[in-house]
Design a protein around this nucleic acid. Structure first.
Lengths: 182, 182
DNA sequence: ATATAATATATCAATTCGATATATGAGCGG
DNA sequence: CCGCTCATATATCGAATTGATATATTATAT
């Protein structure tokens, strides 16, 4: 399950350009599967070369031609194959938590700032989730509601934990400790 | 904050080889910052070339020489610089959630298997967290306890959500739906 | 006896990230 | 009306990362 497969899945909802897909990656998929142009455009080119999507070029003045992609029957079959994996991964890459591991090397002010900013970001996500539920259509698949709900549950738990336990990182600041490790 | 910086941080706890660091990445850091040999060894080589760590080669018979790295004063300064970023990222890359977005294209059996396997994996993490708290020393920095606690809070919330809402993905299976998108 | 796991380092192709380049129209403030 | 930012739209590129594989030996389990 790479960017290619997620693009393919998004195209089951109807034809779209790379630019359109990027907006999906930013909004509904943003909290668990980010992708930039540097991944999306090569993905679409590759899918097209493999015959999993067809491409319709719509000329525009000023802007580059708009390339609209549509999933093919082969693409649909390929997607079902990719979805048939029993144990898909769920990975976190957190510079935030990595930073907090070394809070004892930072000043309390630095730590507090990082904690505050994380909570602000979580609030941004929670707002985004609310907006999604307000603006989405009835035919929006269950899976989208499910992932947004899970995002909300996880983000809320994280916020609560930060508010309740963040203070332990501010206690006994020990900068410059460990004068002789060996 | 890349693998290089995290390695540098780990080395503030004492000297270690790439192999040793890999074990840290698998255990205490595993749930929020995974890294494989393909990242760790080049990172250590680069840190060494930049003078942020020193390297002591210990010959061994049979196995390759054990290379033990130690953080230098320059490295310590560099680490503090890297830690001085107010808004470190926290990113999720979830093939699991991406798959669940397309649950309506899968059979209920397939979806159930994926959900079950995710819960099993969460339980593995929760066990790992318990073991960490049992086996860690008194001088273990607050930050490590904090990140493990946050991991536990987040994983528990996720498990609860899966148990309470997973069933919505099994309702109205609509495989082969959308016969004419255009 | 055979297979697997642990110790230990290293490389490589494929993938992804993050920034940048290009080109234009719309809207807004000074 | 000039300049600024934002939105539209595609594309590339170096750097970082992933995941697999190679090598070599000993210890443990089947």
């Amino acid at each position: 399950m790479d960017v290619k497969t997620v693009c393919l899945g998004m195209l089951t909802d109807g034809e779209a350009s790379g630019y359109d897909l990027k907006k999906h990656f930013e909004s509904s998929f943003g909290h668990f599967f980010a992708a930039g142009y540097g991944s999306i455009y090569p993905a679409l080119a590759s899918l097209s070369a493999q015959g999993y999507v067809s491409c319709k070029e719509i000329p525009q003045q000023g802007k580059p031609d708009r390339k609209v992609y549509r999933i093919t029957e082969n693409g649909r079959r390929r997607l079902l194959q990719e979805l048939d994996h029993p144990n898909p991964s769920h990975k976190v890459r957190s510079e935030f938590l990595a930073t907090m591991c070394f809070a004892h090397l930072m000043t309390p002010d630095q730590v507090q700032t990082v904690l505050d900013n994380r909570i602000t970001e979580i609030d941004r996500y929670l707002t985004m989730f609310d907006e999604f539920e307000c603006t989405c259509m009835e035919q929006t698949p269950n899976g989208m509601h499910f992932t947004v709900g899970l995002g909300r549950a996880v983000m809320s738990a994280m916020k609560k934990y930060l508010e309740e336990h963040g203070h332990v990182l501010l206690e006994n600041p020990q900068i410059g400790k460990r004068p002789a490790t060996g």
